[in-house]
Amino acid sequence: MLSKTFSVMIIFSFVSACLTNNVERMAESFVSSLSDAVTLCLSLLGMMCFWSGIMKVIAESGVLNKLTAVIKPLIKPVFGKETAKGENLENLSAAIMANFLGLGNAALPLGINAVKSFEKNNKSGIATDSTIMFAVLNTVPFQLVPSTLIALRSKYGSQNPYDVVPYIWLCSLIIISFAVVVCKIMSRLWRKKL
């Protein structure tokens, strides 16, 4: 996926740059984009280390068992039986909770823990349905408090910056349900190609 996405983006950009006479800017931005990537990686590093460590402590203390018991009935129909047990379930529950509570930076390392445990015994390099479901659901997050949006709205003098929040919840719920259905249908269709 990555190679195709990258190639399409670069070729499309180059053609657009030639059309809009922006080749020089494209060349300049290439250099800064590489250092941006390193900066991003470094800024993730602390969070990644810390939350992976915390996750391990929590997992060994057994606190997660109680949490997973609550979430399990929701996870089972969406992710299937295999994912809804043991280490997979623990990591997945932690990632879902972090997302739900809006712990943005903590949600990523916990999510990565989850997909790593899904694919631990997978040597083929072909994604399993659980990982795809998880990744796709991560493109449609459920934010309890969309703090960036609220901050932006109050910055420009909104009367009540919070008034959209219930509608965002409604939107999210509809979209997340749709995403689950799409993944389920597509996993059937793609099975033949495996």
């Binding site: 996405t5 994604a127 990982t131 449609v140 793609w190």
Partner: peptide, 29 residues
């Protein structure tokens, strides 16, 4: 509020899990 970046999210999760073939992930997204 209801969507997130697609390319970045998918790439990060799949490369962390060492996945090369992502099947229907991109079209579904």
């Amino acid at each position: 509020g209801a969507t997130d970046t697609i390319i970045y999210t998918l790439s990060v999760y799949f490369s962390a899990a060492n996945i090369k073939k992502t099947r229907y992930a991109l079209p579904a997204s």
